[in-house]
Design a binder for these strands. Structure first.
Lengths: 111, 111
DNA sequence: ACAAGCGTAACACAGTCAGTTGCGATACTC
DNA sequence: GAGTATCGCAACTGACTGTGTTACGCTTGT
């Protein structure tokens, strides 16, 4: 069980920033936070069953993202380009998630 | 042969912005710009042999990029995490480029 | 009651990017 | 040679974003 302040000190930032990020992981069910005296943060599940993909998805990063096609755009070339690129990006994102899914928190910790 | 002003009007932006972007494609050898009266922009090669990967690389996007590992960081877990993630991202980026390489400008144009 | 912790809102600050203006250099036309 | 159209580039602005910070309320254990 670690407090926001401890984590913040360790990574060189501010407790509020830590709570902002970890809060999203809590919403996703990856972490549990406890309030009050002796509160703090801990993993919601065993580190062996949390993958980097879980974290990536929880943070909703979508590094590889295609914005919506800006409907009603008159240029057919622009449309065609967007379709193709969007397809490729989606495919790439799935590949990324698949790769991230192969590494667990425990794997990283044991290196 | 199109001028920056024509292209800018078409995509709804400013000629200078167009020149900024297309200038990078020119540096990469994908486009040729001609100065003076009746100048403008044209493809440096046939659209059949320019791929989306060429454009992606020319623009140096690196959508999927891992910053340098911030050398000399004391936390071994952080190090291990960075190594693994960087590897996955690099692999993903290569896959993206490979996919982009399968589509040429001509392909997009003919849709 | 008090202290320690999270949750959240509000604000400041720096960085980034599109947009804009201005000006010089180049090349074509007359 | 004068005029005009174009690119090349630098400088400035404004919007947006992300981090950091402060402040305050709520929860929990001693």
């Amino acid at each position: 069980m670690l407090t926001s302040a401890e984590i913040a000190t360790h990574v060189g930032t501010n407790p509020v920033v830590v709570r902002r990020v970890l809060g999203r992981l809590r919403e996703a069910g990856l972490l549990i936070s406890e309030k009050g005296h002796a509160g703090g943060w801990r993993l919601a599940r065993s580190p062996e069953v949390i993958t980097l993909a879980d974290v990536y998805i929880a943070l909703d990063e979508s590094i590889v993202a295609a914005g919506s096609p800006d409907h009603n755009l008159s240029c057919s070339v622009e449309n065609a380009l967007h379709s193709r690129v969007a397809g490729i990006l989606q495919q790439t994102e799935m590949a990324l998630i698949e790769q991230l899914g192969k590494t667990t928190i425990a794997d990283v910790h044991d290196d």
